[in-house]
Write a protein that binds this DNA or RNA. Sequence first.
DNA 1: CGTCCAGGTCTAC
DNA 2: GGTAGACCTGGACGC
Length: 306
Amino acid sequence: MRELRLVGAGGEPVDLVRTLNSHGFVDLPPMKPDPDYRATELTVRTRRGKPRHIRIESGRRGYAKLSILGPASSNGVADDVTDVVRYVLRLDADLSSFYAAAADDEQLSWVTTGAGRMVRSASVFEDVVKTICTTNCTWSATVRMVHAIVANLGEPAAGAPPDTPWGRAFPTPEAMAEAGTGFYRDVARAGYRGAYLESLARSVAAGELDVEWFGRASADELNDEELERRLLALPGVGPYAAAHIMMTLGRYHRLILDSWTRPTYVKRAGRKAATDAAIQRRFRRYGPYAGLAFWMFLTRDWVDEA
DNA sequence: CGTCCAGGTCTAC
DNA sequence: GGTAGACCTGGACGC
């Protein structure tokens, strides 16, 4: 068992439950939250050996508790797993300036108690794949595709049951590159997205495309405009997908405007209608955090207020 | 049964 | 540069 101090890089508080229910991807394997999002299970790859199945939950005040389930693990493996969890929970992010801006906003000041930390997948590749699986389809179709990809191509942790997506790490680009066109068509039933996924996996596996760098690069090395341009160049990634991927990368300037967020904004704001431009004006004051502020505005009721 | 469309994108003008 | 039309799939509808 390990403990993780729930504090952001700027000393700001971290609300674990809000983080574990920060956006739809937390409900996709290899993550499996409890129904109330007060804890989650997750299967992660480590530098050596099989993936590990773990559980993250509240610990003593101000801490999360991390348990590695299954066979006993060495300290090295526990260190690896801890690093992955810190990454997934985005504990390295500094949201203090976002909170400073939100404190003056009557409709968003509630976030300063620790909301706004968006879960990210263990790799940028995984977030790109999942995002492509959300395009032009219902959420149930996204679930079907991602379940098939993880259940069939993901490496199982020790003791993982067969034929389920749970207990398996998200597949490597190599595994997805080798799966074959028939897998995407007949098993994942990804339709025309299959070609996008296969092309993406092949480029990454071949070392021609380094999507992980998109997550590591600073804003000086890779500014938002250039990053967006590169994301739009990926197969199957258009304006919506680029904005969503940028959110997972911690680039919150762009608002995710899609068939769910637009009507949800109108409802939450108590309006009859709102143009994209009007929505963007509402959150412009947040500058680089405009997209995050928008997302918080939409998802306030995802967690019961204490 | 057919039509529409969902957390859109691509191609061809 | 902006805008139709096609596109896999499978639920949700209307008929």
